[in-house]
């Protein structure tokens, strides 16, 4: 169990230090507007990256539809917050509750999609998660939800059938999504969510659940041979991961005045996957760093304006080639052998 501790402290340390620095900078007014606007999205992406890392890095299953869970949390959490506007006046508490609701719905979605996911392997599993993301997007794009004193009114495809009381309002308007959202997400809330996420992931990894999940990743057949119930543990990891994504979605959505389903499309899923892979599979600290850098990078490249996305693509390819090409791999192995080469001969 000692193995994780360094990385754990580094992760917590980084987050706390970054939070403290940002708070000091913003209180002294030294922070640019664009940076200020990016703080909440960065927090949301960090949570998304950690959450997806649980699925891809720790459970070892590829997911191409993680934005679907984020979308689920964003829509349900935001709707809940709007409904609670009058009953819960404290914005912090309201945001917290909306994230919990987002997490619950994310988890439910995770459970539902987990049923087919558990029966499939490799690329077939990946395509099902992709399909799931597209289905969620398609449904939210055509969902109309209204709210008045009689409760919720839900309809697919058009809002014609929804007749609301005078005091009621439309929550979700199909492809227009949710508009007039109160921007209650704050950097502090994001910080707390990240800390919570880290607690959950590290505690999971260091418990018998996490061990079993990683054992399945490393060698499914061996895990079965020592009595590990593969279905149960895969589902546990999947649901937790989806719930975290749901909470991140609720946080993310309430940083904007409008949110649409198209914000959480396939490209978003891929972006999160890129964060995880660049940060290193199973490496939580790596996910935090890559989520931060890659969210800032397009902004930092704003000077290049037209070329920035091209540069982003090139950076991505070059990094992957450099870290994974067999040529550089051999080089790295040689360096490792030079410094730790005696391992083989060590008697035990």
């Amino acid at each position: 169990m000692k193995r994780n501790n360094t990385s754990k402290y580094v992760s917590f340390g980084l987050i706390i230090a970054a939070y403290a620095i940002m708070m000091i900078l913003s209180s002294t007014g030294k922070i640019t507007r664009s940076m200020q606007g990016m703080l909440v999205p960065i927090c949301a992406y960090i949570v998304m990256a950690i959450s997806l890392n649980l699925t891809v890095g720790i459970l070892g299953e590829l997911s191409l539809g993680h934005a679907g869970f984020m979308s689920m949390g964003a829509f349900t959490g935001t709707c809940a917050a709007i409904i609670m506007t009058e009953s819960v006046t404290n914005t912090g508490l309201r945001l917290g509750l909306s994230m919990v609701i987002g997490a619950i719905f994310g988890g439910i979605a995770g459970f539902l999609i987990g049923i087919p996911v558990l029966r499939l392997k490799g690329d077939y599993l990946a395509i099902v998660t992709l399909a799931f993301g597209e289905i969620i997007k398609s449904i939210f794009n055509n969902l109309y939800l209204g709210f008045d004193k009689y409760g919720l009114h839900l309809q697919l495809l058009s809002e014609k059938g929804i007749k609301l009381e005078e005091s009621g309002r439309m929550l979700i308007q199909g492809a227009m999504g949710i508009s007039k959202i109160k921007k209650i997400s704050t950097f502090t809330a994001g910080f707390i969510l990240i800390i919570l996420t880290l607690f959950i992931v590290y505690h999971l990894v260091e418990s018998r659940y996490g061990r079993a999940i990683m054992a399945i990743r490393d060698n499914r057949i061996a895990a079965e041979s020592v009595g590990v119930d593969v279905t149960k543990y895969k589902m546990t990891a999947f649901v937790i991961s989806a719930a975290m994504a749901g909470a991140a979605g609720a946080l993310f959505a309430q940083n904007y005045s409008t949110i649409t389903a198209n914000k959480f499309d396939f490209n978003t899923s891929i972006l999160i996957l890129v964060l995880v892979v660049l940060g290193g599979l199973g490496n939580i600290t790596g996910s935090i760093i890559s989520a931060t850098l890659l969210t800032i990078l397009p902004e930092a490249l704003r000077g290049f304006a037209t070329y920035r996305m091209l540069v982003y693509a090139i950076v991505l390819i070059v990094v992957m080639l450099f870290t994974n090409a067999s040529g550089t791999k051999i080089m790295i192995d040689k360096i490792k052998a030079k410094f730790g080469g005696n391992k083989e001969e060590e008697g035990l």
């Binding site: 061990r211 079993a212 990743r217 490393d218 061996a222 020592v226």
Partner: peptide, 17 residues
């Protein structure tokens, strides 16, 4: 077929799950 990325102790603890 060990769980290569886990420690020796963790390998054994998985079996005690």
């Amino acid at each position: 077929r060990l769980f290569n990325n886990l420690t020796v102790e963790e390998n054994i603890m998985v079996a005690m799950d």
